[in-house]
């Protein structure tokens, strides 16, 4: 589905801009990956003995696949609330620079901060990638509404997938469950690799992958934080060194 031209009168209504955003979920293969991932999260929630409402609420409130998988895995393996919160909190740090880099594309001089709360909540890897592709085709004063539509569309699809996965869980062959859980690392690795623009990004990605198993051998509880900050800082050092 193509979006109307930037100066088209079809952008004028708030409702139509919202609907264009919602319909844009069909333009990307990432929506299908996201759907399958959330079928897996629904099934995982069922197998860890959480309620359906819990699973749906975690999709709507957390809205980040890896954080939900980490939370389920931590609570399922008997970790304390603090350990689980720490693991989720560390995995969420990546959302900070994503929000920081998307907001300048949404803002106009008249924009209030509270108008940006909902778009900020929707930001996760998929929406972040889509914003860079789609927003240049959306008039600036319609972008917040458009992103709210896109985010709402994605959340509705993922709530449906969570619901389906939760009900299917008991009937899913284990091989299917394993295949769905492998989707998250594969899709995240490849979409991050495609977003690598500078050598520093590549260094951060490769070193981050390599350092985690080393650090996790010490089992500190904040392994991802240690390997992430070390690898990221080395990558930043490479960036500084190359610029000299």
């Amino acid at each position: 589905m193509a979006l109307p031209a930037l100066d088209s009168p079809r952008w004028q209504g708030t409702a139509s801009a919202f609907l264009y955003g919602m319909r844009s979920v069909t333009t990307t293969i990432l929506t299908a990956v996201l759907f399958a991932t959330y079928v897996g999260i629904g099934a995982l929630a069922h197998d860890t003995h959480f309620s359906l409402f819990w699973a749906l609420l975690s999709t709507a409130l957390i809205w980040a696949g890896p954080a939900q998988i980490i939370l389920l895995a931590a609570l399922g393996s008997g970790a304390t609330v603090i350990q689980a919160a720490l693991a989720v909190g560390v995995s969420g740090i990546r959302l900070f620079p994503m929000v920081v880099s998307v907001l300048p594309m949404l803002r106009t001089p008249e924009t209030r901060k509270r108008q940006l709360i909902l778009p900020s909540h929707f930001i996760a890897v998929t929406l972040w990638v889509e914003c860079f592709c789609l927003l240049p085709m959306v008039p600036r004063d319609r972008r917040i509404v458009f992103v709210n539509g896109l985010g709402t569309g994605l959340v509705v699809i993922c709530l449906t997938a969570t619901w389906i996965g939760y009900h299917l869980a008991a009937n899913l062959p284990p091989l299917f469950g394993a295949a769905i859980l492998l989707l998250t690392p594969l899709a995240f690795l490849l979409s991050t690799a495609r977003n690598c623009k500078q050598p520093a990004d590549v260094v951060a990605l490769v070193l981050g992958l390599a350092l985690f198993p080393v650090v996790s051998w010490f089992d500190t509880g904040v392994d991802i934080l240690i390997s992430g900050i070390s690898a990221g800082t080395i990558a930043y050092g490479v960036h500084r060194w190359r610029r000299r």
Binding site: I93, S101, L181, Q198, G232
Partner: peptide, 28 residues
């Protein structure tokens, strides 16, 4: 500073990916 924040965020995401592979949840 944003280059550093982005590099750390990318490396943390890499760590999250590695964690799911090294300590796989559920059926994985």
């Amino acid at each position: 500073i944003l280059v550093w924040v982005r590099a750390v965020a990318t490396a943390i995401l890499a760590g999250v990916i590695a964690q799911i592979l090294v300590h796989p949840p559920g059926a994985l």
